[in-house]
Amino acid sequence: MKNVNHFFEHKKILTLILVSAFLWSSIRIFYTDQTLISYDGISTLFNFLWSVFYLDVTPEFLVICLKAVVQTILYAFGGLSLAIIIAIPIGILSSGTCIYNKYVNNTVVTTLRFVLACTRSIHELIWALLLVSIIGLSPMVAVLALTIPYVGILGRIFAEQLRDVPQQPIRLLLSNGASYTKAVMYGRIPLAMPNIISYIFYRLECGIRSAAIMSFIGIQGIGYQIHLSLLDLRFGQVWTGLICLTILVVVVDAWSSIVRKALTS
């Protein structure tokens, strides 16, 4: 055991591992892959970059973009709200704080953690592809596909936050005769609430980005508009869509950082 600890103290080993992994992988890709830039690629690139100056700002397209932005926001909020509703009971159960019986608690915690890890490890677009082949193409798919991985992420964070609250108030409640469930209800949840809300607002931005890429399976939204304009090779419209998406994400980010600052002070 001591030897192992000694091994991990050498920082040079870490540097060596990281640098050699990066060099090896890039050299490997460089030699196996074909030429980087496709035929006529450079002129297309300049064409694409130059069309920043030809943004499509006609009122019709701006209205389309605004509608798409609103759709993206709505899908993100729908998916996140359902994920929060599902993740709260799962998070409480998998925090291992509300069941008194030790064996029941251990089995519940390990199974729930495994389920959360599985839902978390698959990307939301893959979930969407799988769901489309089950329930067909509808806005429900976007919402459910957002919900499933976010339950995994939020459930884990809820469990961690509920476990890491200051222990003194909880012990006081338990010694005064409260049951484990009541200690969770009146002790742990109020104490962990600010952190949980701030994390949810942090995830909002990621949710919006995830909702935007649902375009790939044909769900409406700002990503869909960008994709369509790109297929038409109208680069001015593509840039307008990209700028709309950036403004949306920046605004949501600013909102969430204001809320988080208000929660911590």
């Binding site: 890709i29 196996t32 892959d33 074909q34 030429t35 980087l36 830039i37 496709s38 690629g41 450079i42 297309t44 690139l45 694409f48 677009l125 980005r209 995830s210 935007a212 890429i213 375009s215 790939f216 990503g223 960008i226 994709h227 790109l230 593509v238 990209l242 998406l245 950036t246 949306l248 994400v249 920046v250 980010d253």
Partner: peptide, 25 residues
């Protein structure tokens, strides 16, 4: 930073496919 952060990887890849040959790069 905020521009590249806001655009999802998938859309970036679709755009890059215009001028790069399909592959790992």
């Amino acid at each position: 930073y905020s521009f590249t952060r806001a655009i999802p990887e998938l859309i970036l890849a679709i755009i890059l496919m215009l001028f790069l040959t399909p592959g790992i790069w």
